[in-house]
Amino acid sequence: MTVRPGERTTLRSTGPDLGAGALADRFAGGRDRFDVLELRAAGRLVASPAVPDALAPMQRLAPASAAPTRTLEFLGRGINGRSMDMDRIDFAATRDSTEVWEVVNRDGTPHNFHVHDVRFQVLSDGGEVPASALSGWKDTVYLPPNRPLRIALRFTDHADPDVPYMYHCHLLYHEDAGMMGQFVVVEPGQSPGRPPRRHAHAPHR
Rank of each mutant, 00 (worst) to 15 (best):
R194N: 05
V115W: 01
L37V: 00
N146W: 11
M166E: 10
H114F: 14
V3A: 09
P52T: 08
A92Q: 03
A92T: 04
D96P: 00
V46N: 06
H114Y: 14
G6N: 11
A50L: 08
H199I: 10
N112R: 13
G127K: 08
S132A: 10
E102W: 12
P68Y: 02
A131T: 02
T71D: 13
L149H: 10
H111A: 04
R154I: 12
Y173C: 08
F155M: 05
V103R: 03
L61W: 13
T140D: 14
T9P: 06
D157C: 14
R12P: 07
L37F: 01
D176R: 15
V115E: 04
M86K: 12
F120Y: 10
P203T: 00
V100N: 05
H170D: 14
T109K: 07
L18D: 02
H158I: 10
V36L: 14
D107N: 04
S48P: 08
V104F: 00
F155G: 01
G19Q: 02
D125N: 14
L23C: 01
L143I: 15
P110G: 03
G43L: 09
H204K: 03
E7G: 05
A177C: 11
H114P: 02
A62D: 00
D117N: 15
V163T: 15
G21N: 05
G21A: 08
R12Q: 13
F34Q: 12
Y173W: 14
V51L: 12
A50D: 07
S65I: 06
G76M: 08
R77I: 15
H199A: 08
F74T: 01
P130R: 04
L39E: 02
R147S: 06
P144G: 00
P49H: 01
V104R: 01
A54C: 12
K138M: 13
E175R: 13
F183A: 07
W101I: 00
R40Q: 11
P144T: 05
T71H: 13
A177Q: 11
L149Y: 06
Q182H: 06
V103P: 03
Q59A: 12
G76W: 02
R198S: 00
Q190A: 14
P192N: 05
T9F: 15
P203S: 00
R88S: 03
A64Y: 04
Q59I: 08
S48Y: 08
T109D: 09
A28W: 13
A28D: 09
V186R: 05
D87S: 11
H111K: 10
T156V: 07
M86L: 08
N146S: 14
L18H: 02
P144Q: 05
L149Q: 12
L45C: 15
D176G: 15
L72D: 04
D17R: 11
T140P: 09
F91W: 15
D157K: 15
E99V: 06
F120S: 04
L37S: 00
L172H: 09
G126D: 09
I151M: 12
S191Y: 06
V184Q: 11
L75N: 04
Q121S: 09
R12I: 08
T10L: 06
D96H: 07
E175S: 15
D160W: 09
P196R: 01
M58E: 09
R154W: 14
T10V: 12
